[in-house]
Design a binder for these strands. Structure first.
Lengths: 261, 261
DNA sequence: CCGTCACTTTCACCCAATGGAAGTCCTTCC
DNA sequence: GGAAGGACTTCCATTGGGTGAAAGTGACGG
């Protein structure tokens, strides 16, 4: 009876990964039925696979039957280069920035069409922001995003700007030409600015982390209340931090690899 | 012949997970052959599975052929309760502690026989410590570990103390009876202390995060240079932070579900 | 008391995963 | 230069583990 609907049937490993992929920021806990629906897999299959993931520690199941990402998977993920090397190196510098500003300090990397937030520091005094570690935000409406975009290659920027640019506030840049102009200005002055483009009441400065190696491109940013008008005063510290991180990263690369013999 | 060596043959999903499990803090990057050796799987099998993991983003492969944990897996892992809810809630309080002390601030949870470090703040002025986010350290030689152990149930403590207690410095508590006495004292005074028990030159204070729910047990600790003799002066702030975190956690548990419509 | 819903277990079928073997492409060493 | 070794990749016949429809369980609730 021609079961082969349309999908060329994911492999078993692929199905197991689908289960992990079913979780997202708005669905960090899922019941068995929800998992089956979101992965589009038969219920018994999900049941069996989920049980295996739980037994390894990739998923957890609580008393109410809800699944969530497991501790062991989280532990394994701390070994990812982005979390380990980059975060480890950047954190003390981010801490310094936090101390002098008491504002949100962000570290993001370029991934696909998004800025992926790798680290975020914020205290009780900081302005609330939408970002979250592990969150993806568009590049045209965030400080770190613009900083990353401003040093991406022309072909990428073109394909980025060709897609529709979602609007978040009335200040979000949604016109292709204006974005390109803005990026040129960003590249010239060496740092990115946003003004209530993602969230009303917040503005930000950001700089790209320099890197001569092909290391994953990162950017460092600070988000403050838009009543603060001294954004530019933060630039020297921000840039110094980014440069120090870049330097340490490059050193680390040389040490980490088998060596350039 | 008789290929069935001893292991009852892991399932396909289990094998894929083995690959992830092959990475650890001292081996965050592995070559194909190393992966095969560490997982004890045939090379072609590893090759095929690894390729699938890479295509999903659970692993990455660099130009030199080395595999490491992938960005998408890291991203999924940020949805783990321990990283998401607990970390998110605790961070601002940890930040406050850092501001007042400028020392290492640790957040760890109880897992198996270890204290698993979930978050760690440290600046350039902080004393260097062995901990790392995602690291596991023994419970008898760390501040957070003792704090967790002191409120674990008696049966667990007994089985913990029955195992040999590894020594790290000449001050590490390695005698069963002394550990039990120490834990009683810790429980009575309401906070844990260590004095060069993990690393010479460092001492620490820690308190358990109170929680009426069955939530994963956590502890908050500060590690300072052992020349500082005012450890006790940190206790009020530390305890206040732990209590605030505990309160927020309990609130969050009630509100976590589907959402406020 | 019975229908509904969410989950769990079973089991005969069959195809996808398997892994030995062979092929490719390096580097190293004589 | 070329042979030997090592690391990775591809191939493909075999087969046992994964599959998922169907039946079973059990917890509501009307």
């Amino acid at each position: 009876m021609a079961v082969n609907s349309d999908v060329p049937r994911r492999s078993t490993a692929g199905r197991a990964l689908s289960l992990l992929g079913a979780f997202d920021a708005t669905h960090p806990r899922l019941k068995l039925t929800e998992l089956a629906r979101r992965t589009d897999l038969p219920l018994p299959t999900v049941h069996r696979l989920a049980a295996e993931l739980v037994s390894w520690g990739a998923l957890e199941r609580d008393a109410t039957g809800h699944y969530s990402i497991g501790l062991r998977l989280w532990e394994a993920a701390t070994l990812a280069p982005v979390a380990g090397r980059l975060r480890e190196i950047a954190l003390p510098f981010m801490q310094d920035l936090y101390e002098t500003t008491r504002e949100n300090v962000h570290l993001a990397v370029h991934d696909g069409f998004d800025a992926l937030y790798v680290e975020k520091l914020s205290g009780h005094r900081s302005v609330p922001v939408v970002s979250r570690i592990g969150a993806r935000l568009p590049m045209h409406s965030t400080g770190v995003g613009k900083a990353l975009l401003a040093r991406a290659d022309a072909a990428f920027v073109r394909s980025y700007a060709e897609r529709p640019l979602p609007r978040f506030t009335r200040y979000t840049i949604t016109e292709r030409a204006r974005l390109l102009r803005e990026l040129r200005a960003t590249a010239e002055r060496g740092y990115a600015l946003t003004n209530e483009e993602m969230t009303l009441g917040s503005c930000s400065v950001a700089v790209a982390i320099p890197s001569d190696s092909h290391a994953p491109a990162g950017a460092l940013g600070i988000v403050v209340r838009s009543v603060r008008t001294d954004l530019h005063r933060l630039v020297p510290d921000l840039r110094a931090a980014a440069e120090a991180i870049g330097r340490k990263l490059d050193e680390a690369v040389d040490g980490t690899q088998p060596g350039r013999a």
